[in-house]
Amino acid sequence: MEGYRLSHLDSLEAESIHILREVAAEFERPVLLFSGGKDSICMLRLAEKAFRPARFPFPLLNIDTGHNFPELLEFRDSRAAELGARLIVRTVEDAIAKGIAREVPGETSRNRLQTPTLLAALEEFKFDCAIGGARRDEEKARAKERVFSFRDAFGQWDPKNQRPEPWNLFNARIHPGEHMRVFPLSNWTEMDVWHYIARENLRIPSIYFSHSREVVRRDGQWLPVSPLITVRANEPVKTLRVRVRTIGDISCTGCIESDADSLEAIIAEVSAARVTERGSRADDKRSEAAMEDRKREGYF
């Protein structure tokens, strides 16, 4: 049966499609979180494949921090339009205005404020399942999270009380008001995502490729100069050839110096990298349990 061997990417794809089909069958109102970032781009392709020739049965939801790389928003909108998918956008800006999300003085990043915004959006549309692009290799709290990750009526994750998840038998049962986060890319690595993007010939936002950008050195990384950050006197602005490895709030997403202008070059760069992709996100560096704490509150 040697000819019936699946490559690792085909195995991962089969597993993810199975997960997406389970979501479609088990939940009444699932939604797919689509930011325009590389992981959610892969998820969209998997969703296309899982249900064709029919269209995938979920709308898309983006929680917009307002602190964006403009290229990302353009990409998000054009990709959704291309697929004819319904895209719902809820903004942190709006959540602040409504008092749903509250800013803490001195905090520039809006990552934390995405959580109440997301929870309010799930409630507004009565979504009972949010499909996210998180991967277990990103961070060690995520390494312990289930594919079907239960959230209580407050949207919280309880890492000590997770449902066992044997084989591919996912327990999707919830009570009204509770919801599930589902992560079809749980077993994918950053490298798998890039290989898949290359194999499927997927379009990605231009900022993943090398480009010229004004940056300042802060907390050991190159931070993009934007109206959202105040350049300090001791921070000379430099124009460098950079790209982003992961996309978050522009006020805290570090760029890496890179000449990688093609997928092949990115793959070569990632395979030689000696730092994980989350190493360029200041929000994860705050403490050893930063991600666990944010996830407990209901973060993606």
Binding site: S7, S11, A198, R199, N201, L263, E264, I267
Partner: peptide, 10 residues
């Protein structure tokens, strides 16, 4: 396809 993942299994 060119530039794709090496043929390895899981």
């Amino acid at each position: 396809s060119p530039g794709s993942a090496p043929e390895m299994d899981l």
